[in-house]
Structure formats: C-alpha cells, structure tokens
Design a protein around this nucleic acid. Structure first.
Lengths: 242, 242
DNA sequence: CAGAACTGTGTATCGGATACGCAATTGAGT
DNA sequence: ACTCAATTGCGTATCCGATACACAGTTCTG
C-alpha cells in the first residue's frame, strides 16, 4: 500500500508555519473560498471514514467542491496537508490526566486517552510512520501532559523523556497490530496461519508449545494493559532503585 | 510518502505459498530466466541501498535485465514481492540467543539482534507497518527464538505472547524514531524545533522544564537499553509477584 | 510431431502528484 | 472611480508506478 512516486519532499518549515498559524494574510486578490482548516477537516473526515489511502488531493478537492489544483493555494504539497491532518486529529488530552493523583495514575490515564485516539484514527499511525514528528501545537500538548504527569516521580529529565517515548511506542505498536483484528478477512488469515503451523510447526518447538498452550487465543481484557503495567512496574522499580 | 493508487490487495495465500516454497514446478515451457529468490535479492539490495521507495517493479526489473512485466510471472503483484523481501531480510537469530543463561539474558540478546536487524534494514519497518505480519519461515524463527528464551521464566502462555509483542513493539518504535537521527537535514529540523519552542514553549510548562533540564539532549548509551531494562524489570516483577 | 503450457515482451490504461499559465477578482494608491 | 499588481480557482499537461492483455517464441507431453 505504500508508494513514493511523484512526491516532493516535505517542507518542515512550511508545515510549522501552517501549524502555528503564523502566516501573513494576503491583502489583495479574490477572497479565498476555503481555509486551510476546512481542507484539513475534510481530509480528516475522509481518512476517518475510508482510510488514509482514500485521501488524495483529487478526492479532498472534490469533496470540497473545488478542483485539485485549488488546494495548492493553501498547501505547498500533500505532505504539508498530511502534517496538518495529524495535528488536527490529535486534539488535546483531557483534564483527567492532570487531575490524576500520582505519576502512575496520571500516566495510565494519559496512555488510555492516547490509545483511544489511535483506535479512533488509526490512519495517524500510517501518516506518522517513518517520519520525524513535527512539533505541532497538539503534539506538544500531549507531550507536555505526559511529562507533567511524570514530574512527581523524581526521575532525571532524560529518564522522563525516555519513559514517555517508551510508552508511546507501546501504544503505537499495539494499535498497529490491532488495526487488522477487527477487519473482515480475519477468519481467512487465521485459517491460513493455522495451516502453515500445521505443516511447519514442528520446526519451531517453542512456538508450537506456546500455541498449544493457547498463547495466541484471544484473551479478554484490554490488550493495552499488559504492556502498560509491565512498563510502569519497571518505572516504579527504577524510582525505588535508582 | 505513502500512496495507494493502482495496487491490488495482497494475496496472503499466494505469499505463503511462495514463502514456504510450496509451488509445483511447471513441466513445460521455456526455462525461466530468473528465480523468485534472485528477484527478491535484487529488490532487497535496492531497498538497502536506496530505501523502500526506490523499489519499483520497473527498477527491480531493470536491475535484473528484464522488462517490468516479466516479474509478474514470478509474483502476482508487488505486495507479494514485498512480503518475500521482508522474510528474506529477516534472516534468523543467531545461536547466541538459545545459548544465553536465563530468560533475561536470552531475551536481551534476542532484542539486541532484532534491533541490529532493524537498524540494518530500516525499510522493513515501512514494509510491515500497518499490515498483518505474514507467517514466513524467518518470521517464525524469530518468534520461536524469543518464546524459547522466555520459556524458563514460568509465565503463562498468554503472558509469554504479550511479553514478546511488547518487546518487539519497543524495538520497532525506537528503530522508527531513530531512522532520521542519522540523516542529513537533522540540523535543520533541530533548529526549527528550537525556534518553535522559543516562540510557544511557555504554553507547555512541563515540556519547557524538561527541555531546560536537558531531556532532549543526546545522551550516550544505546537508546534501546532504557526501555528494554524497564520492560524486563517489569517482567521480572511479574514473575516474582504473579 | 502437434499442441498445450509457459516465458518474456510490447503496449495500453488507470490513477496520483504537481508544474504552468490563464482569466477573473479585489484592494491600494492615484 | 480607475488602474494595476497580488492573488485565486481552474484547465491542461507531464511524469511515474502498477498492472491488465495479447502476442510470439520455447519446451515438454502424448
């Protein structure tokens, strides 16, 4: 599903200018019939409904009733539109994070909200995969909330940073794995996997044993929890034994 | 950098057949001038040298001295070629994992090898992002090695599974973040980030404090270690307090 | 030896991103 | 008000990647 073709490199400078609304308003010329915000909102709606692949410049423009090239009056290219889509979809974490008592409760709440966000807009994962994260307002708000929750733990600045990154990584990785779990062809995949294991499982004894013991059966409970609990236990251990 | 355009859905059945070499050999017709293996090797070489975006059917074919369409005699489509590239690049973990003493040493060794692999072939991250993992021989070998290392820990099957997924997630997420760290435009990005924070940092007090305390300064040591140590501490805690 | 099963190739189609130039619109300075 | 430069939306054209299709040559099977 990935392609590279006719795409310019992204222009972080331009994205940042757009993200922080630091553009000079043009003084002359026709009134723009759109705004960057409306375009972004339209693009996000498409991505939410049909996935990121459905977001083409043509499609976004058509939904807004303009031609493709009109969009280029608002963004240098698709990369910048995507950057704005991401920050827009991120939104800001709720107050519940700051109101939680103690670093562990705060981080847990933060992680749950982040998790819900990625489950709601799974295309964010694709849009931000393998590219440097841009410092948009909402991106920074999430980061700030996590660091704020972690502050009372008494870790060094570097440890705080690493901790947040570790938790984000867990959330993103899990969200990525679970995107497919709800999908249609799921039965088919499981059936094929079963066949493969039946035919070749003997070459992988530990794996075969784990499967026989039900390691791959769906087990109840939020899948986020196992990893999150382990990580937070590890952080707690670090705090107690620096 | 992502595109969806003229791409068929991938055919897991076909990929699995290719991955496990379960194809019947044709009895009649001209000798094939290529093999699936050679095509995959060529494609991997391109991806290693120039990134996954450089791997187009045209490019792979040209490098092998055939026309684009010739490749379609070996793979139903690009998706299947990509699946094979991934399993091929994965290789198998070394013996050092199985020889390690204790689950923690084994998992640590496993994680280091996995990490090195992703650092060597970062395009694997892109190729496997947001898609269900196919059960190729090497994929299963890695999984088997991890489960084998974890076996003496005495966790339940489900916990073993979740643990391995947690560690893979950490490795992949970190590898993804660090892909850019070595790149050229890095200075530029940091400069831009600095400017943004100077202008808007006051809105994010915890973040500003962390930065002031040097949280984002590069610190020595393998970046894999912090998260890995925390996770393994968490697992150890789970083992001690089930 | 005929014909079926295959192979590599040439050609064509279908998107997608985006460069370029035009005509209509509108505010600033006269 | 009037002129013009700045700016907008638009039509058109280009480039590129994936892949469908049909053809001609190749090689076993019966």
């Amino acid at each position: 599903m990935s392609k590279a073709s006719r795409e310019k490199k992204r222009d972080p400078k331009a994205s940042l200018t757009l993200l922080w609304g630091e553009q000079e308003q043009p003084r002359r010329g026709p009134k723009p019939s759109l705004t960057a915000e409306r375009i972004v909102a339209g693009a996000v709606a498409i991505a939410d409904a049909e996935g990121l692949d459905a977001v083409s410049m043509q499609r976004v423009a058509a939904d807004l009733g303009v031609t493709t090239m009109a969009l280029y009056r608002y963004f240098p290219g698709k990369a910048e539109l995507t950057d704005l889509m991401v920050d827009s979809a991120l939104g800001v974490p709720s107050e519940a994070v700051a109101e939680a008592h103690g670093w562990r409760a705060g981080l847990t709440e933060w992680a749950r909200q982040c998790w819900a966000l990625y489950r709601r807009h799974p295309w964010i994962l694709t849009a931000t995969a393998m590219r440097r994260q841009l410092m948009g307002p909402n991106q920074l708000a999430w980061l700030d909330a996590a660091l704020n929750a972690l502050a009372p733990a008494g870790l060094t600045a570097a440890q705080q940073h690493d901790t947040v990154l570790l938790i984000i990584g867990h959330i993103r990785s899990l969200a990525q794995q679970l995107v497919h779990a709800d999908e249609e062809g799921n039965e088919e995949w499981n059936r094929l996997a079963g066949e493969v294991l039946e035919r070749h499982g003997h070459r992988f004894p530990a794996l075969a044993a784990a499967i026989a013991a039900g390691a791959f059966d769906p087990h109840g409970g939020d899948p986020l929890d196992f990893g999150l609990d382990r990580i937070l236990d590890g952080i707690a251990h670090l705090i107690d034994h620096p």
